[in-house]
């Protein structure tokens, strides 16, 4: 390690706003460990977020941090990256933020293949506003605005990003931070738009409303499937057999797609954009 995860925290910002049992803390910790391995300090890293529980995380990290408006983090990040191509820009967003109000920006950032890493925390609900229906909520799930069960189909965020042209698409889970670490490392190494969907949990709302249990019980629901769900990972975590939980089905995790094409910065010929970052 070049530094430690703890050293990258803004300790003076604690306590954080996350609820006990929330999966976001595990994802944040994983991000910090990845960053700590790559950097001495985060002087050249900008963390840009929208609005929601996951977006609050950037404020806890001792970097150039930008907490923007609901859904628009990718637009701020795009301007910043084009102005300062030498910076490593990482966007933290949620499923409501990135796929609901901000869905348009996601597909266009992917289409441009701008060299950003977008980490989308998917807890299948609007947590900060009280557990309402999200574009990622699966059918039949209960939320505070789908009291009779959701009747809408949900977005597959990774498939959407792939279709829109993201040159790197991966998925991880709060349940398996080791696998997530590998996906995040590869996303940060990638040149061009890299998108990582992370399955995480809202214990206060989604878990409670759907009787999925809280904390660790809810985490376990991320890893229940009869199918092989690993994609392009160095080591595959073992699964527990699927049983009981009706509204959750484990999505494939790992590196789902990756290709090499010029980043937007290269296409624009930006002088500050180096071909190879270390």
């Amino acid at each position: 390690m070049t530094t430690t995860a703890k050293a990258l925290l803004r300790r003076e910002m604690m306590p954080h706003i996350l609820c006990p049992g929330c999966g976001h803390g595990i994802v944040m910790n994983t991000m910090l460990r990845v960053l700590a391995r790559r950097y001495d300090n985060l002087n050249n890293v900008a963390l840009v977020a929208g609005i929601g529980c996951s977006s609050r995380i950037v404020g806890y990290i001792d970097a150039n941090t930008l907490h923007t408006t609901h859904g628009r983090a990718l637009t701020f990040a795009s301007g910043l990256k084009l102005a300062r191509p030498e910076l490593k820009v990482i966007v933290v967003t949620g499923d409501g933020d990135g796929l609901g109000i901000g869905g348009n920006h996601l597909i266009h950032a992917a289409r441009r293949n701008i060299d950003l890493t977008c980490i989308l925390f998917n807890n299948e609900t609007y947590g900060m506003t009280g557990g309402q229906l999200a574009p990622t909520t699966v059918r039949e799930a209960f939320t505070t605005t789908s009291p009779a069960g959701n009747t809408e189909p949900h977005f597959d965020a990774a498939a959407l990003a792939t279709a829109a042209g993201a040159s790197f698409v991966g998925r991880g889970q709060a349940f398996r931070p080791d696998a997530l670490e590998e996906v995040l490392e590869r996303a940060l190494d990638h040149r061009g738009f890299s998108f990582v969907e992370v399955m995480t949990d809202c214990t206060e709302y989604f878990g409670r409303k759907n009787s999925l249990g809280g904390g660790s019980d809810l985490l376990f629901t991320q890893s229940r499937s009869d199918e092989e769900v690993s994609r392009d990972l160095s080591e595959w975590p073992s699964l527990r057999p699927g049983e009981g939980w009706q509204v959750r089905e484990t999505q494939p995790i790992g590196v789902l797609s990756e290709d090499s094409r010029p980043a937007f910065e290269e296409s624009l010929g930006l002088p500050g954009y180096k071909r190879k970052e270390t």
């Binding site: 408006t69 628009r72 701020f76 795009s78 910043l80 102005a83 348009n104 920006h105």
Partner: peptide
């Protein structure tokens, strides 16, 4: 950009840079 919200968002990001 893809719309006017994105336009001003990108402008603010570039200004921070």
């Amino acid at each position: 950009m893809e719309d006017e919200m994105a336009s001003l968002g990108s402008v603010i990001g570039a200004s921070l840079g």
